[in-house]
Design a protein around this nucleic acid. Sequence first.
DNA 1: GAGCCTTCTTGATTACGATCAAGAGGTCTC
DNA 2: GAGACCTCTTGATCGTAATCAAGAAGGCTC
Lengths: 198, 198
Amino acid sequence: MSAKQQMMGLLKTYLASFTMLTEEFLNDFDQKVKLNVFEKGHYLLRKGTVCEHMHYIETGCVQCYIGTKDRKETLWFMREGELAIFKNSFYDQSESVGSIVALEDTRVLSISYKDLEQLYAEHPFLERTGRKITEYYHKNSDLKSYVLYPKKPEERFDRYYQYRADIVHRIPQKQLASFLGLREETLSRLLREKRKNQ
Amino acid sequence: MSAKQQMMGLLKTYLASFTMLTEEFLNDFDQKVKLNVFEKGHYLLRKGTVCEHMHYIETGCVQCYIGTKDRKETLWFMREGELAIFKNSFYDQSESVGSIVALEDTRVLSISYKDLEQLYAEHPFLERTGRKITEYYHKNSDLKSYVLYPKKPEERFDRYYQYRADIVHRIPQKQLASFLGLREETLSRLLREKRKNQ
DNA sequence: GAGCCTTCTTGATTACGATCAAGAGGTCTC
DNA sequence: GAGACCTCTTGATCGTAATCAAGAAGGCTC
């Protein structure tokens, strides 16, 4: 079994949890989905280009940010089992104002916007799955603003940690700080205090 | 033509912009959608209850918030032509951690979760519309975190104003401040400066 | 229109995170 | 293993928004 076929298994199980998948669909799907590997530091999407693919992360971790390289404003982190797109750019197939970069060596299964649309057109039952998945991501899309609301660094950290402890532990502090809207110095000091008090 | 029928027109035009609507669907739809009026200050959803309805706002303006009444953390404002639900509570039909209140006298067309699910089940073509609408709202769901990222009050205000100038002008300052994550005193001073400098 | 309540404004003080600066520790490459 | 680079840490200073306090203005109710 190829690496791709092995990875596809997980994704198919995921999709099958929404509706029955037909034989024809699975064949079409196999042909449209591509396996990609991005080494740490490499880009899945560059600012100024169109987000043409939706990526299902099989292993690894990616960061999405806007702003300049030294003044990053991190929008989110995604890890294995999650989907990565730059929303505006993907849905509208317009130029992206942000970038997506691999924070670890990352393996993804990718499908292009065009191919996905074609799948929807040819397999209408997929619409329901698409709606449910979109609803799921939409539902969870407030986390960032929930985190940023408090001004106190500790409260921000705690709010994020509550939902994404795993991410917090595997991400460089500097990048985490750029997500929390804190200076890396502030986060460093905060974590020192937290370590001390337990 | 009843007030409801008049309002339905807009909503149907909106839905028809996604796909052809069948006669049977329109009949079902009419029966499931209810016209509701909420006076200023009245609640569309109370914390601790389940968000059973999706509301299409025909006229007026509503605010969604979490936290206590005196320490509001406003999540969003919606106005005529927009949909209002408390996401987690509606999609999962679970207890809401937040409330939705009318900031003006507000007229809405409402459909229950159960009825909506039934519409999806009986009219599969609606799934595509549902997906597109969800994608649209999902796409725009970063505004709040984009606004909250900067610490400078002015930058927060400007970021919000750029996308929701109409809302800014019709909302009480105090409520706007609770959205921007600022004290009302700070917002008051900021606006005074802005007025002066032009 | 009087009285009450809420929103908005202005002032003074204080707390704390950003910023600037520099050094320590870790990791990768040749 | 030397050197370079990057992340993380610690220190000192400064700017500014939160906080506390109180008064002004605008809306409602009776």
